[in-house]
Design a binder for these strands. Structure first.
Lengths: 211, 211, 211, 211
DNA sequence: AATGAATGAGAATTCATTCAT
DNA sequence: TATGAATGAATTCTCATTCAT
């Protein structure tokens, strides 16, 4: 990024890393579009602007590229939890923040998410990861809602279903846009805002009706 | 082995049809599991219990198999609409019915749904279809909700978001089970019931708050 | 072999077998000349006059070709023993017959013998076989000589060394001609005859000197 | 790492030479085990503990390594002849010395001998050399025996066959041990001793019978 | 002098598809 | 109608070798 004179003259290390990144980026894009098999090493090399063999100097084999890409999907729980700080009074803002954070995470990982969906059955290691992001998202939100339940702000049951509905909505929006190339008739932010409202009412109304 | 005259002249037709079905079923299963490329003609023929070349006597080429499979995804709107008959008083039952109908449709078409997700970018004709089932589902539900709005039972705005949330939830449950092999901690029916309740409260609560 | 009209018209089976044989013959020749690696599937296919891929319809992979070839090296003990029938009075003729039989066996298997020598370290299954022909030859002759010892025709000790010397000579002649392309200054038959004589004298002389 | 001046100017030469030797040793070992093709430059460099490219700074190409190795096979005649000094009275000792000298030569050159056997057909320059050691051995021994014939100690004919048998035996023992990993049931020295005896008796007995 | 990066040629093998029967 | 044989194109990956530093 900061190609200072020193780096340019010494060269080597920076360039090598850059080549590696270009290969990963190309592989990520192609695998997301065409699947693991469809992303041939030839196509990856062409898109990355390197010789096909160079790929194999950087990665043991094609599988190793996928494994490397999969590393990017992990460790999202903390970020999701961070976006949920705050107390019950700002629940709506909190949900909005959460939706945005989750959606952004999905978008940032859209290639690898697609790869996971696509290759779930072909690569066992993928199967384990595939649920991590979506299910973690449900879990984290569910925990927060249950905390509010414990504080008496929300009715006892069903926090999980509500969390699932909310996360589903974000995920669906993501899939519609990035997999099906569909344009929804409202922006994501509008959707998240409305969905937050519906959700809160849904749980609270429930609370009321339970009372 | 016992190609009697009857079978050759009359039953032959049936056999041929059956062969064709077996090929389609095998292709469907394999493509759903391994993607279009992963479902090699060899594997399809083995699973279908026919000779590899026989495939090409029934279908011009591999693409033609996919196209044939895609036909099964269309024309679901009517069935979805049918499940939504009734008036506002039985809204909850209606939603429950809708969720079940939609979920069942997804499950019945799970292979081809997966293929669509997987191959969206590779087969342009798939891309057009991919949104048909999920988006039709949103649309149909949305229309019904808007009808209730027109009748004054529901607040003006946001029917679409609510519909989207509801359909998303069903879709998410479907994906969790059939793509990620995850077991949710409640049955689909419990989920649908709770989700219906949350949704109704969500929209009604909104109505209240808007008033 | 007997391409009768029926076989020609019905075709199929015979042709397939023939293709397979041509591939084996080509592989045998090339592996003997150039080693396992040097005998590329491309070269094999060219020499066999078939398409490269056809090889893989007949053999699972390249290794399977070698394994098939290796089968030809086994079960030589019986033939060697058969050539040793007769009693002590015709010892010289017997040795001559044995040398010829053994040498012919080597020549008939010259390709596979060479492959074994070449690939001993690369293919463990080869290692086990490699000694079979040469060492069996020593053993069989040694047993016969020991039988004569038991009958009192030959001195007690060293039958094995004598057998080893005799077999070595045949093997050396074989290697000189077929691996090193050397022309010895006498025919194989002359060599075998003289060697038989030297051997008999060697053992008998020993007998005399021992007495 | 610590390229001190001394090492660069003086020791450098030694280091460079040492590197070269390490490459040759590694190549020799690997080619003997795995053949010319099996001994990849990568494996050679790893075994030699140098960078792969370094090989090409020391040798024009892979072939040049083999050519260098082949030089080691030449000029053995003098040593073989030296081991044959002495007169007829000590014939048995002489043969024993000869067998040991020849066997030791083979063992010292076992890698390159194997390479020659393996690559005879692939490298024309190898073909010329391949016979040098074994055939020189026959020739030298044959000459000595013929000298004894000229002195009247041995019968006229067949010295060559006897020499061939003797050398064959040594060679066979060498091949059994170093190529086929076979353990003979007696030590090399026992074998050489017995073989010498058989040989002498063989020629002398012949002499007697001719008289 | 030595090394890390890069590559063209070629390896074995798979795949969808055609041909001939 | 169904099948066994055959194949051209493409795939992943290896190897010897060159370039630039």
């Amino acid at each position: 990024m900061d190609h200072s004179d020193r780096e340019t003259s010494v060269g080597g290390k920076g360039e090598e890393q850059e080549t590696r990144e270009r290969i990963l980026a190309a592989a990520s894009q192609l695998m997301a579009q065409k699947g693991y098999k469809g992303a041939t090493t030839r196509k990856i090399s062409e898109l990355a602007g390197v010789n096909e063999v160079t790929i194999f100097r950087h990665f043991k084999n094609k599988d190793a590229i996928l494994e490397e890409l999969l590393k990017g999907i992990m460790n999202v729980r903390q970020q999701l939890e961070d976006s949920l700080h705050g107390d019950f009074s700002e629940l709506k803002d909190m949900l909005l923040r959460y939706a945005r954070a989750y959606y952004e995470m999905l978008v940032e990982r859209k290639e690898i998410m697609m790869i996971c969906m696509i290759e779930a059955d072909n690569h066992p290691e993928v199967m384990k990861l595939i649920s991590s992001l979506p299910m973690t998202a449900v879990e984290v939100l569910c925990n927060k809602l249950q905390a509010f339940q414990d504080e008496g702000h929300l009715p006892r049951k069903d926090a999980c279903v509500a969390a699932l509905m909310f996360v589903s909505t974000c995920f669906y929006a993501f899939m519609a846009k990035y997999r099906a190339n569909l344009e929804l008739e409202f922006t994501e932010d509008q959707l998240f805002e409305d969905a937050s409202e519906v959700l809160i009412n849904g749980i609270m109304g429930k609370m009321n009706s339970h009372r």
